[in-house]
């Protein structure tokens, strides 16, 4: 095969990493579904895809910030459940929503401080946080239930001017993340920190005067806040607080991030990649529902795609 093309396919150019191959997979999937079933291209179904993909996409977007800086956040799944439980506490929305986000900020701060100040490996720190939050949400709301503030329900299920809310959420989430990642010093500093870590020189960014610890903490806070956002959306969709709704979300989010070509060693990755990664996951499950392929094989295909993507990228060093 042509070398240049191979490099392009495997993300050899730039720091966006591998994004073309996942994009092709997305288009192939979409093309396949269009041919296989006339239902796929119906507006209703496409909106359904957006609605389905949204929570994972939002969580994965938050995760992207942490991963680009060379970290990992496993606590997001429990935080999503916790957020739905807080919102279902039968109080006014103007108190519960800020409370949920304040809690998310607290979680992110704790993760970030434990990782940066106490030298704890991100996998370990956020794994512990995952357990703590899982316990906390089961104390708060042992089984699904409760009622949500109206504002949450409206902001998730409404359609102002005929535009479905899911679409608005997607646009707002992506635009916010875009601004943070590509339109601020903070975003560039995340790449700098991750690039230093990946090349084995963790001091590199600090030597340029980048306040790496603070930047890293902020990345964890952003990841938590996006997880809380996904929690608000999910709560609105299921109309209740559910201690189990976020189970496994951290792994799905990481899957989406990795499919999008962002490398776990840090420094290489992109926001569009993550969005594509989430779309791949959504198209898979949507496609399985539309066609008569066993829904149970979709998990296996998801794993296979993830493996293919990670197998395509080749790194110099071994590692997590």
């Amino acid at each position: 095969m042509n070398r240049g093309l191979l490099r392009l396919l495997t993300g050899g150019y730039g720091r966006q990493g591998l994004w073309l191959a996942p994009l092709i997979v997305t288009l192939l999937l979409a093309g396949f579904l269009t041919v296989r079933t006339p239902d796929f291209l119906r507006t209703e179904n496409l909106l359904n895809v957006v609605a389905q993909v949204l929570p994972i996409m939002i969580t994965a977007i938050g995760q992207t910030f942490v991963v680009i800086a060379g970290g990992l956040d496993l606590s997001v799944g429990s935080l999503i459940s916790f957020t739905t439980a807080v919102l279902a506490m039968d109080g006014p929305g103007y108190i519960l929503i800020p409370a949920a986000f304040a809690f998310a900020v607290l979680v992110g701060l704790t993760n970030g401080l434990v990782v940066t100040r106490f030298n704890v490996h991100p996998i370990i720190a956020t794994l512990a946080m995952q357990y703590i939050l899982l316990g906390a949400v089961r104390l708060l709301r042992p089984v699904a239930g409760g009622t949500l503030p109206d504002i949450v329900l409206e902001s998730v299920n409404g359609a102002p001017f005929g535009i479905p809310m899911a679409l608005i959420w997607a646009v707002v989430a992506i635009a916010t993340a875009w601004k943070l990642l590509y339109g601020t010093r903070f975003g560039l500093h995340l790449f700098a920190i991750g690039g230093g870590t990946a090349s084995g020189n963790e001091q590199a960014a600090r030597n340029f005067g980048v306040s790496d610890k603070r930047t890293m903490v902020l990345a964890y806070v952003i990841s938590s806040c996006f997880a809380a956002l996904a929690g608000v959306y999910l709560a609105g969709r299921i109309s209740s607080g559910d201690p189990n709704v976020g189970l496994g979300f951290e792994l799905d989010a990481i899957t989406a991030v990795a499919i999008g070509g962002t490398q776990l060693s840090g420094g290489i990755g992109s926001l569009p990649g993550t969005v594509i990664g989430a779309l791949v996951l959504a198209l898979l499950s949507n496609g399985m529902n539309l066609t008569n392929i066993s829904p149970f094989i979709q998990t296996a295909i998801k794993g296979a795609i993830l493996m293919a993507v990670v197998g395509l990228q080749s790194r110099k060093k071994m590692g997590l």
Binding site: I254, L264, A300, G303, L306, V310, G311, R315, G319
Partner: peptide, 29 residues
């Protein structure tokens, strides 16, 4: 995958796990 290809250990073993879970779900419907 991890030792020779230098692929990310988290992702490789996670992907393997997902594939196996999917396979069992598929086999057992």
């Amino acid at each position: 995958m991890i030792g020779k290809r230098h692929a990310s250990a988290v992702i490789v073993t996670l992907a393997v796990s997902i594939m196996l879970v999917g396979l069992v779900q598929f086999l057992s419907s």
